[in-house]
């Protein structure tokens, strides 16, 4: 049986189409605001992590992450700063750092972990095992609900 019909975009014939961007409120900071803020936070986080303050660096980078359309640069900046923090944390310290984060930040961290996994095998030099270790420890603290929230959230990183 032909399955070509499955590829027909039936929404094209609907006047009132639900777009992905209809499912969340746009970022009030605007594209420029988000980009500037992300750059500044990434710099702040890098400074903190070089002083050995992992918790402070995570707190800085995990507040108000960029989301939505048109802010890919800001997303890349914060993701790379966050991965720097993750890579420079000893695995014995991870559990302690995670317990110091709020629920909302734990959620944002989970989103960044999946964003990091997305980049694996696409030329990035990120190690997957670091991400998996953080993921395992984070699920122990925040529960599988945190994974569900990342999969559900339309405000994609």
């Amino acid at each position: 049986m032909s399955t070509a019909f499955r590829k027909i975009n039936i929404d094209a014939f609907d006047e009132d189409v639900l777009l992905p961007s209809d499912l969340y409120d746009p970022d009030p900071r605007g594209v420029d605001g988000v980009t500037a803020e992300s750059k500044q936070k990434a710099q702040e986080a890098r400074n903190l992590v070089s002083k050995g303050d992992t918790a402070g660096a995570l707190n800085a980078i995990l507040s108000n992450p960029p989301y939505g359309e048109g802010v890919d640069d800001a997303k890349a900046t914060t993701t790379s700063a966050l991965l720097t923090i993750l890579n420079s944390t000893r695995s014995a310290d991870i559990a302690g750092v995670l317990k110091g984060l709020g629920e909302e930040q734990q959620g944002h961290l989970m989103a960044y972990l999946y964003k990091g996994m997305e980049g694996l095998g696409q030329g990035s030099d990120q190690s997957g095992s670091v991400l998996l270790t953080w993921h395992e420890k984070l699920v122990e603290v925040a529960g599988i609900g945190a994974i569900v929230r990342v999969m559900t959230d339309r405000r994609l990183l």
């Binding site: 925040a142 529960g143 599988i144 609900g145 945190a146 569900v148 929230r149």
Partner: peptide
Amino acid sequence: AHISVRCPSLP
């Protein structure tokens, strides 16, 4: 008040 409780379990 608008309270949201994040659950550790499935939805």
